[in-house]
Design a protein around this nucleic acid. Structure first.
Length: 320
DNA sequence: TAAGATAAGAGGGACAT
DNA sequence: ATGTCAGTCTTATCTTA
């Protein structure tokens, strides 16, 4: 891959790559060593491994992409490319800098511009390490995807959030796996496919504490909005896990809407509440389930079920 | 064995200093 | 920024039916 000399060769390169458009092919990614489909993002000028986010171009020596020695060369070859699904904007930033770099040596450039270019260069170099942690995070994301059973849109959303966190410098001083876990949690919430913090904490092997901390940081710094957790979905989850009959499930959903209407649900762990509502519904329909069973299904404790249940009994006067 | 009670501890929100 | 306070949830242990 030649260093881009000027706009003409840049265009030529884009043209070459353009010929590859819509040809995704199977090959082994040099970074993650996984044999998988490598896709070209039609909106950017990058070819991207869809497993780890490794950015590459076809018809070039792969190794030179990431085994650069010389700073200048590295900078010139840098292609900051988030993977396919993430490349929504600031596409090809490094290429632009590469072009300006040449301009700086070739054409006489306004000296006042030099410092600006220098800054850009540094920024660009930083994105190189950004890409490194990005790649690590994305491959981690891939393994978590299977463990948590995340859908593709959730994975993309999580990756997007993580990348935004990168850009805003939120990762500095924070553990990126933990930030990734927080991003996953947020993505799940946003895509309306709730996973509990505990599930994510356990599968990612990251302390729940750090996930919640970074979760808050992300919400605040990225000004994200999270939809309220759908308590009915919690009911469905717990019910399915505890093998509750459809009849009782429906009863529980009705009961839950009443609970929500009366504001009993605010500030309570939705899963615990759902379990308590289900427990109450089981009593109503005569289905036999122990508090412990429900608690386990909701990943909470019997104490919580009891407390919630007592609340329900007091406030809804359900005695039967 | 399930359910209930109680206590100690952690973590975080609200609010004041 | 730091501290306090009330409320929530968890873990552990004991008692009751």
């Amino acid at each position: 891959m030649a260093i881009l000399q000027d706009k003409a060769s840049l265009n030529k390169r884009n043209e070459e790559i353009g010929n590859l458009e819509r040809t995704s092919e199977d090959k082994t990614c040099p970074l993650c060593k996984q044999y998988n489909t490598i896709i070209r993002d039609s909106k950017s000028t990058e070819i991207v491994c869809n497993k780890c986010g490794m950015v590459m171009a076809d018809k070039i020596d792969m190794r030179s992409e990431w085994q650069t020695v010389d700073r200048e060369e590295m900078q010139a070859k840098t292609r900051t490319g988030p993977p396919l699904s993430l490349a929504r904007h600031d596409i090809g930033a490094s290429t632009v800098i590469g072009r300006e770099n040449i301009d700086a040596s070739k054409n006489k450039i306004n000296p006042s511009m030099l410092s600006a270019i220098y800054r850009l260069r540094n920024w660009d170099l930083r994105t190189q390490t950004h890409n490194h942690t990005l790649r690590l995070a994305l491959s981690e994301l891939d393994t978590l995807k299977d463990k948590l059973g995340l859908s593709e849109p959730i994975v993309e959303r999580a990756a997007y959030i993580f990348r935004k966190a990168h850009e805003k410098g939120i990762l500095r001083g924070r553990s990126s796996p933990a930030v990734l876990a927080a991003a996953i949690y947020i993505a799940c919430r946003q895509m309306d496919a709730p996973r509990t913090l505990n599930e994510i904490a356990i599968t990612s092997n990251i302390r729940r504490k750090s996930i919640t901390r970074y979760h808050r940081a992300l919400i605040f710094k990225l000004e994200l909005k999270l939809p309220i957790i759908d308590t009915k979905k919690c009911i469905a989850r717990v019910a399915n896990k505890a093998n509750i009959s459809e009849k009782t499930k429906h009863q529980a959903i009705n009961l839950m809407s009443e609970v929500v209407k009366r504001g009993i649900s605010t500030g309570k762990d939705p899963m615990g509440l759902a379990a308590a509502v289900l427990y109450a519904s089981c009593i109503m329909t005569g289905e036999q389930r122990s508090q412990i069973d429900l608690a386990r299904a909701a990943q909470t404790t019997g104490v919580t079920i009891r407390n919630r249940f007592k609340d329900l009994a007091n406030k809804l006067e359900l005695h039967d």
